[in-house]
Design a protein around this nucleic acid. Sequence first.
DNA 1: TTTGTAAAAGATATGCGGGTCCTTTATTAG
DNA 2: CTAATAAAGGACCCGCATATCTTTTACAAA
Lengths: 141, 141
Amino acid sequence: MFSKSCQYAIRAALYLAVHAVDGARIGVRELADKLEVPQPFLAKVLQQMVRGHLISSVKGPRGGFFLSERNQEVTLKQIVLSIDGPDAFTSCILGLPVCSGTHPCPLHFQAMAYREGLNYQLKYQAIGDLAQRISREEMNI
Amino acid sequence: MFSKSCQYAIRAALYLAVHAVDGARIGVRELADKLEVPQPFLAKVLQQMVRGHLISSVKGPRGGFFLSERNQEVTLKQIVLSIDGPDAFTSCILGLPVCSGTHPCPLHFQAMAYREGLNYQLKYQAIGDLAQRISREEMNI
DNA sequence: TTTGTAAAAGATATGCGGGTCCTTTATTAG
DNA sequence: CTAATAAAGGACCCGCATATCTTTTACAAA
């Protein structure tokens, strides 16, 4: 479903939303440590996210990554779109090049029903909001 | 979601169910041709399916692949299980090693709803039945 | 202005799913 | 029995996501 990059991206964004509060910044080191993912690779994903304006960063001492006000409004869908591209939700589950409502594959409608459901969720989950739920319910990231 | 191997497997099984009727056999050549997939790779997938008793084959002249009575009862879920293994539906959508109802990731319940629905469909779709729907509604395979 | 720090950037490696090729074995038609 | 045919099996290759390493750039504190 999601690529490793995308999974890391989502988890990193959520971690920042929960922990990089009140102007605090978090470095790759801590981030990679807490998420238990390879540090150099995570760094790549993070800078890709910065370029896509999904998260923010400052260099230098006491620098690191964080979420601006605007970043808090970013939805999970935007992250997926930015990292994995637009095909993640639209491509045929059987890999057919042409598969639509009018020319469906045998699994088209089943797959669509459930993907649209998830799609809808991601579309309306802003990182900031989700972060509150995570803190409240003590979820894993 | 599904690996290429698994997609090919499902499509091949469905093609056989629709076209390899009345004791007719179909060779890799035709199968690869009609499904528009690489022939040697499809051959691998097919023999894997034979070993898993998902489809049947006979060697020699007029040989090829086909579905026995028993094969017709095979469900899509069995195919997925046999090719992609049991993690296809159970692994965490964010890649967390531990993610369950009691220790959920932030997307656990949304993802579950989505996957369980599809899972249910696959579990109860026998290849033979699905093939009839495909013929009836002239679907792509 | 200098120095330490941390991200950005670029170049490079690796593992594995995906894909190919070649040889062997089984079957069946003649 | 033989020859033709088609699947089975083994060995191999390749591209890309994934991962790493090194150098450069920016910033902040003193």
